[in-house]
Structure formats: structure tokens, C-alpha cells
Computed example of a mutant assay.
Amino acid sequence: MPVTVKEPAAGTGPGPGGRKTGPQRRRRGGIARLGPLPWIGPAVLLIVVVVLWPIYELIRTSFLNVSISGFVRGSAGTEKYRQLFDESGFGSVLTMTVVWTVAVVGVTMLVSLGLAQLFNKPFPGRTVTRWALIAPWAASVLMTAIGFRWMLDQTAGVLNTLMTDLGLIDGPKDWLGDPATAWPWMMFVAVFVSLPFTTYTLLAGLQTIPHEVYEAARIDGANARQTYWRVTVPLLRPAFLVGFVINLINVFNSFPIIWGMTQGGPGSDTATTTVFMYQLKSTDIGESAAMSVVNFAMVVVLVLIFLKVSRWNKEDA
């Protein structure tokens, strides 16, 4: 008896490769057609509003004549940039910003690496010391800076009182009034408040290294020094890069510490580019915006150079 095969209606059967066509395929619509956009859309919108739009406004303002009261008086072209580069203190501020960043980030990374390795080892009171390290991070940076400013005060500061009583100095010293002593103290405070984050970042990196790797190195005959440089350091590299880059950005743009301790004075002798930008705001908003653009470009270049040199996206051979 012949078997009758019923053909599927046109446009309803599976198409090439088993894909459905016709009405069944047309049912996919609405949100499905948008793909991942509903999920990433809010994040993209937030980035546009919070990051990209302010950058655009900053660059636009740097080419305008803006009064102190905030009224736009027309275009200034590149005049604000010429004024900025002609400022008498611009070169020294730029130099001290680089010195400040290199010194604070370098010391922070070295001390944090030592502390992270210490906290990774068992010792009596380790839990207490780990919690104690959070204190500089938990406190307000501005509050910490003001606290050190009071401690270093020339007339009522506890440091002058203590050192005078011990006979270490003949009389009260203006620690923050002289750039030669103000810079080391501000760098000390910057390292002090940067240590917790960097230490815990490196500690987390150390704790992700499998114990089996160290056991294999010991079986292969590697001594402690060889194990550290050939096992610990390469595996700690991702955490080190995270800590370094975030510290680089934070320290370069640091404002509360310097403003809270010296306000960049006397003049601009203890100012970085971020503080110098704020000082310019009181006299010329357009020039201050130009300094902000230069500051932003500098930090982007510094980060890109470091990432290029460190080959952050390359796997070790």
C-alpha cells in the first residue's frame, strides 16, 4: 500500500542547516532582537553621562573665555594653553608632580609587597595586624592630612614639642612652610594612606598561588631565592599590575593630602598639577580647564607607557 508523505506548508518547515523559517522565525522579536543591549545599556549610559560628557565639557571649556562668575565671553582658541605654558611655575610644578608620583608609588609598592608577604605567613597576632592596617584606608584622606598638619604645626604641633623636649631641635620648626621638609612629609602621608589597598591587593594575589607550585619547585631543587623570582613574582604579576596602575592614577591626581596640608603653598612650591589646576580656578577658569586637559592627557600617557613596558596582555613564555 503506498505511503503518502505530507509536505510541510511553505515557509513553516526547517530551512537550510535545520534553521526555522517563516512564522516560527518571525516570532523572535522585541527584546530578543536587541541582544545584550538591555543589559549593557545602563552601564554604557552611565559611562557617557559620568565620564565622556564631562571630558567633552572640560575640553570645550579650555577653548573658551569664561569669567570668574561662570559666564562665557566667547572663544579663546588656544590662548588658554599658551597662558598655561607661560606660567612661571608651570615647569617646576610639572617636575615635582613626576617626582611625587614616582616616589610615592615606588615606595608604596615596595612596602606593600613586604607587608603582603608578612601577612601571608602565620604569626601570633596576624589577624589583629591585618585589621589594624585597614585604619588608614577607613579614615577620610582629608581628615588624615589635616591630622598630620596639626601634628606638624609650628606653634602647637606635637612633633615640635616632642623634639624640643628631647633636645633634637633648638626651637619650633615650620615643617610645612618649607618645601624642602613639606614634600617628604606629604609623601609620607600619601604612602601611609595608600598602603592598605595595595597590601591587600598583593596579599590576595599571593593567596591565589597554589601550594602545589611551590612543592613542585622544591622537588625540582629550587632554593628560596629561585622560587621567589621564578614562581612567586611571575604569578603575582596580575595583582601587582592592578595595584600599580590604580596607585599611579590615584597618586598622580591626589588632591586632599596636598591641599589639606599646605594648599600647594607657599605660592605653588608644594603643588602638583592637580592642585595647580585648582589654584588657577580662582583667576582663570579657562586656563584651569586647560590644565585639567593636560593633566588628564599626562595620566593616560603614563598608564599606557607602563602597560606597554610591562606587556600586561602578554603571556610569559
Rank of each mutant, 00 (worst) to 15 (best):
L110N: 07
L110Q: 10
L110K: 11
L110T: 10
L110H: 10
V111C: 06
V111K: 12
V111Q: 09
V111G: 01
V111P: 03
V111N: 08
S112I: 13
S112E: 08
S112C: 10
S112K: 12
L113N: 09
L113V: 05
L113Y: 15
L113P: 09
G114Q: 10
G114T: 08
L115S: 04
L115A: 00
L115D: 02
L115T: 06
A116D: 04
A116C: 08
A116S: 12
A116Y: 15
Q117Y: 15
Q117M: 14
L118W: 08
L118H: 06
L118Y: 11
L118Q: 08
L118P: 07
L118F: 13
L118S: 08
L118V: 09
F119N: 03
F119V: 05
F119C: 04
N120W: 10
K121P: 03
K121C: 04
K121R: 12
K121T: 12
P122F: 10
P122G: 00
F123Y: 04
P124C: 02
G125I: 07
G125P: 05
G125C: 10
G125M: 07
G125L: 06
G125T: 05
R126T: 05
R126A: 06
R126S: 09
R126F: 03
R126W: 04
T127D: 07
T127H: 13
T127C: 09
T127W: 11
T127A: 10
V128N: 04
V128W: 15
V128G: 05
V128C: 06
V128Q: 06
V128L: 15
V128P: 03
T129Y: 15
T129H: 14
T129A: 08
R130T: 05
W131G: 05
W131V: 11
W131T: 11
A132Y: 08
A132L: 10
A132P: 11
A132V: 08
A132S: 05
A132I: 05
L133C: 06
L133S: 06
L133M: 14
L133N: 10
I134R: 09
I134S: 02
I134D: 02
I134L: 14
A135R: 14
A135I: 15
A135T: 14
A135F: 15
A135P: 03
P136V: 13
P136C: 11
P136S: 06
W137F: 11
W137Q: 00
W137R: 01
W137P: 00
A138S: 08
A138F: 15
A138N: 08
A139K: 13
A139N: 11
A139W: 13
A139I: 14
A139F: 14
A139R: 13
S140Y: 01
S140P: 02
S140A: 02
V141W: 01
V141H: 00
V141M: 02
V141P: 01
L142R: 00
L142D: 00
L142C: 01
M143Y: 03
M143H: 03
M143K: 03
M143E: 00
M143P: 01
M143W: 04
